[in-house]
Simulated assay, not measured.
Amino acid sequence: MSGNREDGERGAAGPCLEIACDESGSDGENLTGGNTDVFAHAGVSLPLAEAASAVREIRDRIRSPAEEYKANHLLREKHRAVLEWLLAPEGPIHGRARVHLMEKTYFVVDRAVSLLLGDPAEAAALFRAGHRTFGEDGWRVFLEAANHLLRVRHDGDPVEAFYGTVDALCGAHPGTDAARILERLAATRFRAEAYRTGFLDGPPLIPVLNPLLPAIVRTAALWGGDGRPVRLVHDRQNMLTPDRIAWILEAARQAGVGLAGVRLVVARDDARVQVADFLAGIARKIASDELNGRGDPALTALLRPYVDPASVWGDVRSRTLLTVQVSGRC
């Protein structure tokens, strides 16, 4: 299939800055039981020729027989020098690439608390206190119940399971800051039931738990926040239907971002998207290592200039290490 189809194109005054995008760590709506704990969405501003040159250089240095290179090629220890070259201040993408990170479990808590309480600040407070108060097992049960409640597809009665979990944790940890927030959640069953009832008419256009769509809007804002119109060239995704692209364009417009369009391509046909794929996969792995206490200080320092300071990050220590300016959601 050719990469020439354009979706959601909209005219804009002046020349557009074209940003190539890709993601890493997508598990759909399964944010607590998937294969990764961080979602990353990268955008690069490179001319096609320069991107193709960077991909050729990576291939020449790694010399793998693989037909299509991915981030895991660069993340192998034997190719550490290639990874450092790509991210270094003298490398081909420095100052011309950004990556937005989402800590998946925090994203679940943020979405659940925002939906049920309309109070994002309580999500940050619960995330900080939950693991410490409920312990590893109790916190995991809560996260899974919240994820199950918000997912479009589900088994059993996710409302009953969620509020049963909330009641049990409140009873086991009375008087704690975390239990105080759960007591507020316990009184929101009617909102949860209304949310689930909405699915009777079919799945929503914008799933609450899918991180890709808000990440694309944020990537557009990173590059178009100064009023310059931008157009995104994105790896083709089943999630990016024409209706959802229209939503992205409208969400960007409401945020004051001049997003002129979203064009879908096959990644292997556009070297710029391949470079975005490299950065997204690399950033996801480095961020995950920091989150789990096994970070590599040298790689973290190399990644830091690329990380969006408004990444959705609940782990304060990791966020501090990963961003130049501590200004995430938590």
Rank of each mutant, 00 (worst) to 15 (best):
W247E: 10
T323C: 11
A255V: 13
T36I: 00
V312D: 03
A81S: 08
A71Q: 11
E9Q: 14
N30W: 04
A283N: 07
V82K: 07
A187Y: 08
F199E: 06
S24P: 13
V82R: 01
L74M: 06
K104N: 03
H154N: 12
V326P: 09
Y306L: 01
S24E: 03
A112F: 05
A220I: 09
G314S: 05
G256Q: 11
L209N: 04
P120V: 13
A54F: 10
F134K: 07
P174L: 02
V166M: 04
A310D: 08
R228K: 12
A129F: 14
R329V: 11
A125C: 09
G175R: 12
T323E: 05
R272T: 06
M102K: 05
E6K: 14
I58Q: 00
G227N: 06
T300H: 05
A186G: 02
G198V: 00
V230K: 08
R231M: 12
R268M: 14
L213A: 03
D269G: 08
C170R: 08
L169I: 11
L205A: 12
Y69K: 03
P174I: 15
L150W: 09
L291C: 13
A192H: 03
R10E: 09
D296F: 03
E29G: 08
L86A: 03
H73I: 01
L322W: 02
Q325P: 07
G135V: 06
A172R: 06
I62M: 04
G281K: 07
E193V: 12
G3Q: 15
C21A: 10
L150V: 15
G130Q: 00
I248L: 11
V316T: 04
G202I: 15
A146R: 00
R263I: 01
I216E: 05
F39V: 00
E6Y: 02
H148A: 12
A252L: 04
A260F: 14
P242Q: 12
A246K: 02
A40V: 15
G130I: 10
G198E: 11
G156R: 00
E68I: 10
V217H: 05
T105M: 07
G314Y: 01
R80Y: 03
R111K: 15
G175E: 07
A124S: 09
G198W: 08
H94A: 03
I282W: 09
A251E: 10
D110H: 15
A124C: 12
L222I: 15
R80W: 03
G225I: 13
R218V: 14
D315K: 09
R132W: 10
V233H: 13
D7F: 15
P92K: 05
L222E: 06
F190G: 14
P309Y: 02
E122Y: 08
V326Q: 00
A40C: 08
H234L: 02
R111A: 08
G164I: 13
R153F: 13
R5P: 06
I216M: 13
A49M: 10
P92D: 09
G261V: 04
V38K: 02
A179F: 09
R319C: 02
D137G: 04
